[in-house]
Nucleic acid binder design. Structure first.
Lengths: 346, 346
DNA sequence: ATCTGGCAGTCTCCACCTGAGAGTGCTAAT
DNA sequence: ATTAGCACTCTCAGGTGGAGACTGCCAGAT
C-alpha cells in the first residue's frame, strides 16, 4: 500500500493481466503474462513488476504459487484508465434496437423489455428501475363505481401511462356524481404537470373556497387521495438472474443464496441504484464499493436514463467482478439512451 | 417390483420412514426406525420388512450401508393413503387471510400476493397462474387519443379488472369521435358477458348492417381489435425461488441452474399447471411424474381455484420431493379457496 | 412360523499422505 | 536494470486406511 505510483510499463502489464483474468478467470502467472504482453521481457522481470503492483495493492496472489489476480483497486484502475471500450457490434446494436421496436402498452412493459435485453446481450443480470417521472402531462381522470363504497380511479398521464387506483369512500356515489367529478377534474387540470396538479389539489383542499360546491369538493378530495396513493410505488425489474449461476466464483450455493437474497431486498437494491442516478453516464461499482457484503464479488455497471433531459430512472447489469467491462459498458450506455427514447416516444 | 402387496405393519413402517425422511433428509436405518415407530420389534425384523418394501419398489437404499429412502412410488403411497393431513394452524390461516385482506387494484396483484403468501408460509416456491376467466361482466369501454394515430383503449370488466390496450389505427380520430364510439359501445354492451361481447362484435362486423352509421362501424372495429389483442396473455407468477436453495438435494449449482431454467420456460410450467386444472381439489406430482427431467427431485402440490364454480386458474407450490406434505396440502387448499373468494369479492 | 441376536461384509466419509505441477522470491551474474 | 537458475511453497488429484453406519443372512429362541 505504498503510494509509489506504478509506471507506464507496470500499468501496461496490469492491463493485460486484467484482460486475461477476465477472459479465463484464473490467476495469471509471470510466464503467461510474458508471452501475452507485447513487451519483450522475461518472466523474472514480470515477477519483479508484479511484486511492485502487489505493493500498490493492485494485484494479489491467492497463495504462494498461484499467479496474480487483480484486486478491486486493480480493476478500478483498469476501468478508469486502461479499458479500451469496444465499439458496439452492429449485431448487438441491432438486437437492442429491435427489442425496443415492439409496440407496448405501459412503461412497465418497456422496462421489462430493457431488463431482458440487457441480460440477454451481456449474459449477466439486467436491472432497470421503473421510471419515476416527477413531471408529466395529466391527460384525463376517470372514476368508476365499484361495489361497497369503492371507486376505481383511472389517471392517464402523458401518452401511455395509465394508473389505476381503488379508493374506499365514506358513502356510495352515483354514476352521475362520479362522472361530474371526473369531468370537472379533467377540465380543470388536464394539460397540467402532475406535480403541479398534486400541489394544486392540496391547496384547494386546504382553502376550500366558498365558490366551490359540494361536488367540486368531493372531486378534489377523491383526486387528492388517488394521487397520494401509490406515491411510493417505486420498483425495479431484474432479469436473467440465472445467468449468474454460470460463473465459477458463484458456484457456491451459499454465496448464490446470499446474492439472491439481496436481490429480494428491494430497498437495498433501490438504494444502490439511486446512487447511480446522480452520475452522468455510465458508472461502475466494483466489489465492495457498492457497500453490500453479498455483492462482494460482484460489479454493477449502471447508467441513468433520461426523458427530456430529466433523469427518470437507472438501468444496468450486475455480474461478477470479472465481467467483460469493455463489452458491457457500451451496451449499458446504448440501452439507457434507447430506453429514454422509447419512453419519450408516443 | 413383485406385485406382492405390503401388509398393514409394513405400511405403518413406511409411514414413519417417510415422516422421518421428510424431517431429516437422510436415509433412515433399521435401528432408528425401530426406535421411532410405535411397533415393538427389533431392528432385525425391520430389516426384513424393509427388504420386502424394497421388493415392492417403495423404498431403496442409496448404497449398501445407508438405510432406506422412500422412492417416488413410496411417496406416492404415502400421500395417497398414509398421510395424516394436519389441520391448518390458526396462526398460518390468519397469516394467509390477512394477506388477502389488503385492497388491490388488479387481479394481477392478487395473484402476486397469493404466490408470495404460498412461498412465505411453506418456505417453498409458490406459483399461481393469472386467472383466465372466460366469463365476466363488461362494465365500461373508454377510448383515449394518443399521438401518431394511436388510441388507448381501456376496458373495465367486473369489479376491478382494468385492461389497457394500444391500437394503431389508419387515421387520427378526434376526441369527440372517440367519446361517441366509447359511449355507443358501453351503452350497447355494458352488463354483458365478455365472451358474448366478443362474439357479438365479430358478428356485427361481418354483417355490417345498413342501419349502422360510420361511427358505429368504427367503434365496433376498434372494440373488436381491443378485445382480440392480449387474448393470449396467459401467464403465471412464481415467488420464493430462493427458498429452494436451502435444500441439500439441490445444493448442486448445476441442478439448481437446470431447475431455474425450467422456471423461465413459461410454456413448460404452464403446461404442467394446466394438467392440474382438471383435477378437483389438491393434486400432487412427485418427481418425474410431472414429466420434466429437471423436476426430477421436485414435487408439485397444486389446486385449481374457482370463481363462481368456474375454474379460472391453478396455484401451488414447488419444492423438493421431501417436502412436508401434511403441512403443505392444507395450505395450498386454503389458499386456493381464499384466492377464489378474493377474486370474486368486489 | 415368526422373530431376534449376532456377526461378517460393504459402503461412505474423513483425515491424512504423496507426488506432480505451477509459480514465486531470491541471488548472483550479465 | 534485467535475467537465468534454483530452492521453496502451495494446490490439486489420487490413493490409503481406519471409524462408523447399516445391511444381509444364519442359527437359535419363542
Amino acid at each position: 500500500m505504498t503510494d509509489a505510483v506504478p509506471n507506464e510499463r507496470a500499468l501496461q502489464l496490469l492491463k493485460t493481466l486484467v484482460q486475461r483474468y477476465i477472459r479465463e478467470g484464473h490467476p495469471v502467472g509471470s510466464r503467461t503474462l510474458a508471452r501475452e504482453s507485447a513487451l519483450d521481457v522475461s518472466p523474472a522481470t514480470i515477477r519483479n513488476i508484479m511484486a511492485d503492483l502487489e505493493e500498490c495493492g493492485l494485484v494479489s496472489s491467492p497463495h504462494t504459487s498461484a499467479g496474480r489476480v487483480p484486486t478491486a483497486a486493480g480493476l478500478r484502475v483498469f476501468v478508469d484508465t486502461l479499458v479500451a471500450v469496444k465499439p458496439l457490434q452492429r449485431k448487438i446494436a441491432d438486437e437492442i434496437e429491435s427489442g425496443f421496436a415492439e409496440p407496448v402498452v405501459s412503461s412497465q412493459e418497456l422496462v421489462t423489455t430493457a431488463s431482458k435485453l440487457l441480460s440477454q446481450v451481456t449474459h449477466l443480470a439486467g436491472v432497470v428501475t421503473v421510471p419515476r417521472r416527477k413531471h408529466g402531462q395529466l391527460r384525463q381522470i376517470e372514476f368508476l363505481q365499484l361495489s361497497n363504497n369503492r371507486v376505481l380511479a383511472i389517471i392517464v398521464v402523458n401518452e401511455r401511462e395509465v394508473q389505476n387506483r381503488i379508493l374506499k369512500l365514506d358513502r356510495n356515489y352515483s354514476e352521475s356524481e362520479l362522472r361530474q367529478a371526473a369531468n370537472y377534474l379533467t377540465e380543470q387540470f388536464a394539460g397540467n404537470d402532475v406535480s403541479d396538479v398534486r400541489t394544486s389539489l392540496l391547496e384547494e383542499l386546504k382553502q376550500a373556497r366558498q365558490s366551490m360546491n359540494e361536488m367540486m369538493l368531493n372531486a378534489i378530495a377523491m383526486a387528492q387521495r388517488a394521487f397520494a396513493q401509490g406515491d411510493n410505488e417505486e420498483d425495479f425489474v431484474l432479469a436473467g438472474k440465472t445467468n449468474l449461476m454460470d460463473f465459477a466464483e458463484l458456484s457456491d450455493v451459499d454465496k448464490l443464496r446470499q446474492l439472491f437474497d439481496v436481490f429480494n431486498r428491494k430497498r437495498d437494491i433501490l438504494h444502490l441504484l439511486d446512487q447511480c442516478s446522480r452520475a452522468d453516464g455510465v458508472q461502475i461499482f466494483i466489489g465492495k464499493e457498492s457497500g453490500y457484503e453479498a455483492l462482494d464479488e460482484c460489479s454493477v455497471v449502471s447508467a441513468p436514463y433520461t426523458v427530456d433531459d430529466e433523469v427518470v430512472g437507472v438501468l444496468g447489469v450486475i455480474g461478477p467482478t470479472r465481467m467483460a467491462y469493455e463489452r458491457v459498458i457500451p451496451i449499458v450506455d446504448v440501452t439507457a439512451r434507447l430506453l429514454g427514447q422509447a419512453l419519450k416516444m408516443p
